[in-house]
Amino acid sequence: MESLDLLSPFLFSYKKRNFVVQEGLLPQDLDALQHIEIHPSDIFLVTYPKSGTAWMQQVLVQILDAAHPELVEDTSNRVRVPWLEGRVLDKADRQRPDPRLFHTHLSVDMLPHGVQAKRVKVVYITRNPKDVLVSLYNFAFSWTMLEPPKSFPDFFEQFLDGKVFMGSWFDHVREYYTARDQMDILFMSYEEMLKDLRAEVVKLCAFLGKNLTEEAIDQVVEMSTFHNMKKNPKANFKDLLEKQRYRSETMRKGMAGDWKNFFTVAQNERFDQVFEEKMSDWPMAFIWDSKQ
């Protein structure tokens, strides 16, 4: 397996594709995930890391709480929407009533087989990869399972080469789009959520078949603002900070364009070049421009 200088001894590469998982999740465990029982009503949130996972967890929890008030749980979003491959921290396989929520960073070919076979609802979030790079760089200083990067220039090159946690952003996004006809998948974007969160919540409710009142939708939006999430212990992962799983808070800015505070002109030009090389035939429209 390829050695990744960025990664601590607590992590390992899997299937020679620069896919990295936390300590305690062995290759055979990943294989076993493909065979877990999937319910037709399950909902999967899929993201490349730092693309809006925590935000969409909050939105999904709020939607289901409004649609199924009898199933409301007084616990954190991390428990409500467990990380499928996070065996050490999350209990994704615990007994829960339907509809169940999961989130994962796994590639298409590593998902449970039932996701495609039963065509369960899949919500996939994209984000400007420049902002993803910056957010993942900062996250590496917070999550105790990652070794802090040596420098931003080093991390920048590793990201472009796909030698970071969860591998290549370009491959991850492309694989899910390519598999769209085999899945019941809704593509959403971080930037569209920033632009008009209410419209995106309405779109998501329609996809999930949840008929909420106007007042309920307003409540979902209000509870899912960055300001309210940052002070909500159920949404801000403060419990992991208290358990020393994180070195610092992970909810930083909740904005688009922070990459401009990190990239040099040369790095921006290099990123654009790599983006054009890898995504030149990309048919899906992004609302951001790689040269912004």
Rank of each mutant, 00 (worst) to 15 (best):
V122E: 06
W282Q: 06
K50S: 02
A285Q: 15
N77V: 14
P40W: 11
L101N: 06
K130R: 13
L84K: 09
D239M: 09
D258R: 12
L84A: 03
F44V: 14
F19K: 02
E23H: 08
K238C: 05
W143F: 15
T213P: 14
T104S: 14
G162L: 03
Q34T: 04
P9C: 00
E191T: 03
D42A: 04
D98A: 15
K16N: 15
F170K: 04
V79F: 05
I125A: 07
P283G: 04
F226C: 10
N268I: 11
L33W: 02
M279Q: 10
G209Y: 04
N232I: 02
E191Q: 07
T53R: 01
L64T: 06
F12H: 15
Q158Y: 11
G86T: 10
P49H: 11
Q182V: 08
R270S: 10
D131C: 05
S189R: 02
Y246H: 13
L146Q: 12
Q95L: 14
H103P: 00
A117D: 15
T144G: 12
Q57S: 08
A285K: 15
F187L: 08
L106E: 08
R94A: 14
R87F: 11
A140V: 00
S290G: 04
E214P: 03
S168E: 08
R96H: 06
S76H: 10
V164S: 02
R247W: 02
V221P: 03
K243R: 15
D98K: 01
D154W: 03
L33E: 11
R100C: 05
L84N: 04
E73T: 00
I63D: 01
R87Y: 08
M188A: 05
W259A: 11
F226R: 07
R80F: 06
Q57W: 01
Q158N: 12
D154S: 11
L241C: 04
D171T: 12
F170H: 06
S290N: 11
R17G: 12
N77D: 10
T126D: 00
H105C: 05
K121V: 00
K163L: 05
S13G: 09
Y190L: 00
A266F: 10
A140T: 08
Y14I: 03
L208K: 02
A206K: 14
L111C: 10
V72K: 15
R252M: 03
P148G: 03
T47E: 05
V134L: 07
M183L: 15
P97I: 10
D184P: 00
G86P: 09
R180T: 12
L64R: 01
